[in-house]
C-alpha cells in the first residue's frame, strides 16, 4: 500500500523567497501527525501544497501514490482541508454551503442536516454565514469535513476560535478519524491538546523540516 504522503526534496517559493525548502517526508496511511512551528515557518503552505492548492516549485510529492502536480484531481478526491478562514460562501446559509459540498462529493442531501446537528449548528442552518462568529464558521468547516469521503485530513489550526465545547468536537473528530484509519495532519500551536492524539510530531523552522531525529522523516 502506498504511503499517505511521500515528499522528496520539495520546495515552494513565493516570489524570490522559499517558504518551503528541501522537505523530504513519508507519512504512512492511518497516522496522526502534528505539524508545529513558529508563525511563518511554512505550516499552512505545506498543508496547501498537500491539498493541491499550491504547486511545488521544485521536487516531487505523492498522496496515496498520486502525483501532487500531474494527478492533482486524483489527489483531491482523497483529501479534505479544514482552513483557518473556514472556506464558506458568506452570502449563503450554512445549509446551502453544505448542500453544495454534498453535491460535489456525491453525498446524499440527507446527510446535510445530520452534519449540521453533529457540530451544534442544527438551529442556525438557515442563517447566512456572514452572520456567524469565527467559532461557528470553524464548526461549519468541520461539518463539511464530515461530508467528504476523504482518507487524508489536513487541519489548519483545528482548535483555533473554538470554545471548550467546540474543542471537544475536534477531540471527538480526531478520535473518530483514528478509529476509522484516516490519516490526519494538523498544523497547530495547541501543542498539548493536539499532542494527545498525535503519534508523531514534525517541526518546521524557516520552511525546513528539523532533522534532529532521522526517524522524524518517516512517520
Amino acid at each position: 500500500m502506498a504511503p499517505a504522503i511521500e515528499l522528496r526534496s520539495l520546495y515552494r517559493r513565493y516570489g524570490r523567497n522559499f517558504v518551503l525548502a528541501d522537505i523530504t517526508l513519508t507519512v504512512e496511511a492511518g497516522r496522526t501527525v502534528l505539524l508545529k512551528g513558529a508563525n511563518g515557518a511554512g505550516k499552512t503552505t505545506l498543508l496547501r501544497v498537500l491539498a493541491t492548492r499550491l504547486r511545488p516549485s521544485r521536487g516531487a510529492g505523492r498522496i496515496f501514490g498520486a502525483d501532487l502536480a500531474r494527478e492533482a484531481q486524483s489527489v483531491r478526491r482523497r483529501v479534505a482541508y479544514l482552513s483557518v478562514l473556514g472556506g464558506h460562501s458568506p452570502t449563503l446559509t450554512a445549509r446551502e454551503n453544505l448542500h453544495f459540498a454534498a453535491t460535489i462529493y456525491g453525498s446524499p442531501a440527507t446527510v446535510v442536516d445530520r452534519s449540521l446537528a453533529s457540530v451544534g449548528l442544527g438551529g442556525v442552518g438557515d442563517r447566512t454565514v456572514r452572520t456567524f462568529s469565527s467559532g461557528m464558521k470553524k464548526r461549519l468547516g468541520v461539518a463539511r469535513l464530515l461530508l467528504a469521503p476523504s482518507d487524508l485530513w489536513l487541519l489548519d489550526e483545528p482548535y483555533a476560535a473554538l470554545d471548550e465545547e467546540g474543542k471537544g468536537l475536534i477531540d471527538d473528530l480526531l478520535t473518530d478519524a483514528q478509529a476509522r484509519g484516516k490519516t490526519v495532519i494538523m498544523a497547530s500551536h495547541a501543542l498539548e491538546r493536539c499532542g494527545r492524539f498525535a503519534e508523531a510530531t514534525l517541526e518546521l523552522e524557516g520552511g525546513r523540516l528539523r532533522r534532529a531525529d532521522p526517524e522524524v522523516q518517516h512517520v
Partner: peptide
C-alpha cells in the same frame, strides 16, 4: 470577490471538481 474573502474560492479549487 464574494468568495475570496473567506477562502471559499480556495475551498472550491481543492475540491474534486474539474
Amino acid at each position: 470577490q464574494n468568495e475570496l474573502a473567506e477562502g471559499a474560492f480556495e475551498q472550491l479549487l481543492i475540491s474534486p471538481i474539474p
